[in-house]
Lab assay of single mutants.
Amino acid sequence: MTFKAIINGKTLKGETTTEAVDAATAEKVFKQYFNDNGLDGEWTYDDATKTFTVTE
C-alpha cells in the first residue's frame, strides 16, 4: 500500500510517499525520515486517505 506524509515544518514543507504493508510500518519509516531531517511536531493520521500529517 502507498502511504503519504504531508510535512508542515518550519524549515521543510512538502509531501513524500512510502510503500508499506501497514500504517504502523509506514509511520516508522516517516518518523525516521523526519528525525533524520530534524523535524519534530504534532502527528495526525487519516486512515481513509492513508495520509500522515506532521505540523511543526
Rank of each mutant, 00 (worst) to 15 (best):
M1L: 12
M1Y: 14
T2I: 14
T2A: 07
T2W: 14
T2Q: 11
F3M: 05
F3D: 06
F3P: 05
F3C: 09
F3G: 06
F3H: 05
K4Q: 06
K4Y: 13
K4F: 09
K4M: 06
K4L: 08
K4R: 12
K4G: 03
K4D: 04
K4H: 13
A5M: 15
A5G: 03
A5C: 15
A5L: 15
A5Q: 02
A5F: 15
A5Y: 07
A5R: 00
A5V: 14
I6F: 05
I6R: 04
I6Q: 06
I6H: 03
I6N: 03
I7R: 01
I7S: 04
I7E: 02
I7C: 12
I7Q: 01
I7N: 01
I7H: 11
N8S: 09
N8P: 03
N8I: 14
N8T: 08
N8Q: 12
N8V: 15
N8H: 11
G9M: 15
G9D: 03
G9S: 11
G9F: 15
G9N: 04
G9Q: 09
K10G: 09
K10V: 12
K10H: 12
K10T: 11
K10L: 14
K10M: 10
T11Y: 13
T11V: 11
T11I: 11
T11R: 09
L12G: 09
L12V: 12
L12Q: 10
L12H: 12
L12T: 07
L12K: 10
L12D: 07
K13P: 05
K13W: 14
K13S: 11
K13M: 11
K13A: 08
K13C: 15
G14E: 08
G14Q: 09
G14S: 11
G14V: 14
G14F: 15
G14N: 06
G14A: 12
E15C: 15
E15N: 06
E15D: 04
E15Y: 14
E15V: 13
E15F: 14
T16F: 15
T16K: 11
T16L: 15
T16Q: 11
T16A: 14
T16R: 13
T16S: 07
T17E: 07
T17M: 10
T17H: 08
T17N: 04
T17G: 02
T18E: 02
T18F: 15
T18K: 02
T18N: 02
T18R: 04
T18I: 15
T18M: 11
E19F: 15
E19M: 12
E19A: 06
E19T: 13
E19P: 03
A20K: 02
A20E: 03
A20L: 02
A20W: 02
A20D: 00
A20Q: 06
A20R: 03
A20V: 03
V21Y: 08
V21T: 11
V21H: 12
V21N: 09
V21M: 11
V21L: 11
V21R: 12
D22K: 01
D22Q: 01
D22I: 01
D22M: 01
D22G: 01
D22Y: 02
D22T: 04
D22W: 00
D22V: 01
A23T: 05
A23M: 09
A23D: 03
A23I: 06
A23V: 08
A23G: 03
A24V: 11
A24S: 09
A24G: 06
A24H: 07
A24M: 08
A24E: 12
T25W: 05
T25A: 13
A26R: 02
A26F: 01
A26L: 02
A26I: 01
A26M: 02
E27I: 06
E27H: 09
E27L: 15
E27F: 15
E27R: 07
E27K: 11
E27Y: 15
K28S: 09
K28Q: 10
K28Y: 06
K28E: 08
K28F: 08
V29Y: 15
V29Q: 13
V29G: 03
V29F: 14
V29A: 08
V29E: 05
V29H: 12
F30W: 02
F30N: 01
F30T: 00
F30G: 01
F30M: 03
F30Y: 02
F30D: 00
K31N: 03
K31Q: 07
K31P: 00
K31C: 05
K31W: 04
Q32H: 07
Q32P: 00
Q32D: 08
Q32Y: 04
Q32F: 03
Y33Q: 06
Y33A: 05
Y33C: 12
Y33L: 08
Y33H: 06
Y33V: 05
F34Q: 01
F34V: 13
F34H: 00
F34R: 01
F34W: 09
F34G: 03
F34L: 13
N35K: 15
N35F: 14
N35V: 13
N35W: 14
N35S: 14
N35H: 14
D36A: 12
D36T: 09
D36Q: 12
D36G: 06
D36P: 03
D36K: 09
D36Y: 08
D36N: 08
D36V: 09
D36W: 11
D36F: 09
D36E: 12
N37M: 15
N37P: 04
N37C: 15
N37I: 15
N37K: 14
N37D: 05
G38H: 09
G38V: 06
G38W: 10
G38T: 04
L39V: 12
L39Q: 05
L39E: 05
L39D: 03
L39S: 04
L39M: 11
D40T: 13
D40M: 13
D40Y: 15
D40L: 12
D40W: 14
G41Y: 15
G41E: 04
G41I: 08
G41A: 09
G41S: 06
G41H: 09
G41D: 04
E42P: 05
E42F: 11
E42S: 10
E42K: 08
E42M: 09
E42W: 10
E42Q: 11
E42I: 14
E42V: 14
W43E: 00
W43R: 00
W43A: 02
W43P: 01
W43Q: 01
W43G: 01
W43K: 00
T44S: 12
T44V: 10
T44H: 12
T44I: 08
T44E: 11
T44P: 00
Y45W: 02
Y45P: 01
Y45S: 00
Y45Q: 00
Y45H: 00
D46Q: 02
D46V: 03
D46F: 01
D46S: 04
D46K: 02
D46E: 07
D47N: 07
D47H: 11
D47V: 08
D47A: 12
D47F: 06
D47I: 07
D47Y: 06
D47M: 04
D47R: 05
D47C: 06
A48Y: 08
A48M: 10
A48V: 11
A48E: 12
A48C: 08
T49L: 05
T49P: 01
T49C: 03
T49Q: 04
T49I: 05
T49R: 05
T49A: 05
T49K: 06
K50R: 14
K50S: 03
K50H: 12
K50E: 02
K50P: 00
K50V: 02
K50M: 08
K50N: 08
K50Y: 07
T51M: 03
T51N: 01
F52D: 00
F52W: 06
F52E: 01
F52K: 00
F52R: 00
T53F: 15
T53Y: 13
T53C: 08
T53A: 05
T53W: 12
T53V: 08
T53M: 08
T53P: 00
T53K: 04
T53G: 02
V54D: 01
V54P: 02
V54T: 02
V54S: 01
V54F: 15
V54L: 13
V54Q: 03
V54A: 03
V54C: 05
V54W: 15
T55P: 03
T55W: 10
T55N: 08
T55Y: 10
T55A: 06
T55I: 10
E56Y: 10
E56V: 14
E56F: 13
